[in-house]
């Protein structure tokens, strides 16, 4: 059984996926990539906002597992553990 994690999204993403707003977003997955796939099932199109068509994390998007920024931006293979919090937010790049 893969671990269950909580996912926190930047409010910016709620604008595009209003059905994800205001809910306790808990999904299962062993890696960050699997967590994203679980959210994609809830909100089709979500994954292409976070990653490009080759599965790489977009340049100006960050994902944290707990307080640790993901290391594998190419395939998001970073492991997650039971009850981890995965945070997805835009990088503050620009002025």
């Amino acid at each position: 059984m893969p671990p269950t994690v909580s996912v926190r999204l930047t409010p910016h993403l709620h604008r595009f996926f209003p059905n994800l707003e205001g809910r306790d977003l808990r999904v299962q997955g062993a890696t960050v990539a699997e967590v994203l796939a679980a959210i994609e099932a809830l909100a089709p199109g979500f994954g292409f906002y976070i990653c490009d068509e080759r599965g790489r994390l977009r340049t100006h998007v960050n994902i944290f597992v707990g307080k640790q920024m993901v290391r594998d931006r190419r395939a998001l293979s970073d492991a997650v553990a039971e009850n981890d919090t995965v945070s997805i937010l835009q990088a503050l790049s620009g002025g």
Binding site: F48, Y49, I50, D52, R58, V61
Partner: peptide, 8 residues
Amino acid sequence: GHGHWGAK
């Protein structure tokens, strides 16, 4: 062009 979130 969404900037952070790519082209849609």
